[in-house]
Design a protein around this nucleic acid. Structure first.
Lengths: 109, 109
DNA sequence: AATAATGTTCGTAATTTTGCGAACAACGAA
DNA sequence: TTCGTTGTTCGCAAAATTACGAACATTATT
């Protein structure tokens, strides 16, 4: 392992892992599903769909927001959360590409 | 919240979250990419691709194995890791379905 | 038997994640 | 002003994740 080798992860790998990590909890998958269905996207309704405390829901929403998968805006006195369409497409494409790329190469075992 | 409501997560959500969680670290994404490329799939070669200690690599491999994305077998004196094709397809389809399902419903914001 | 090569497991530490209740902030209504 | 509604943030605790070096196990070679 010499000093010139670059062993860091690629930007693409980091980005995909970030999306995957955000999706790595059933509550957050449920939230994304719910937001996509769009019966409503207010915090209270999301909370109602989930078996966890509102403080915890708020945290999960924050993580999804930090990962770029959703965004929220205040509609006094409620807060409206939505899928972040731009990054949603990006995420979808990242996963598609990942699986497609790998699949085209797999021959093993 | 009465006793008859079922607020648990669905099996599908749990499964997708499990796959996503396993993919939620750049080292594990890198491992999967590497295994798919299949320049080789021995532990030592995987370790060589990554900027982390072998004990850590071993742990990541264990997690990918537990999630069902890869499997490993001993080829004395080495250990050969490979993509688990069956579950790989399952994972791919899970993500595809998730994004497709959501996308068909999104209209928000 | 001693050594070398290959990985796993153990013990440990630092950090992150998950979760909750309580307190808080912002706003509208009584 | 005082409530009530809606969510966030704080403080805390428990558990899981990430990472490492050292020790260990296994097998082949000397």
């Amino acid at each position: 392992m010499n000093c010139c080798e670059n062993k860091d992860y690629t930007i693409d790998n980091e980005q995909l892992a970030r999306f995957a990590k955000a999706m790595g909890h059933p509550a957050r998958i449920a939230i994304l599903n719910f937001l996509a269905k769009l019966d409503s996207c207010y915090f209270g309704d999301i909370h109602n769909e989930l078996p966890i405390a509102k403080a915890t829901v708020s945290q999960h929403l924050k993580e999804l927001k930090d990962a770029g998968l959703i965004h929220g805006e205040i509609e006094t006195p409620k807060v409206k959360y939505c899928i972040n369409l731009e990054n949603w497409d990006k995420a979808q494409k990242s996963f598609e590409l990942f699986f497609a790329d790998c699949k085209s190469k797999i021959e093993c075992c």
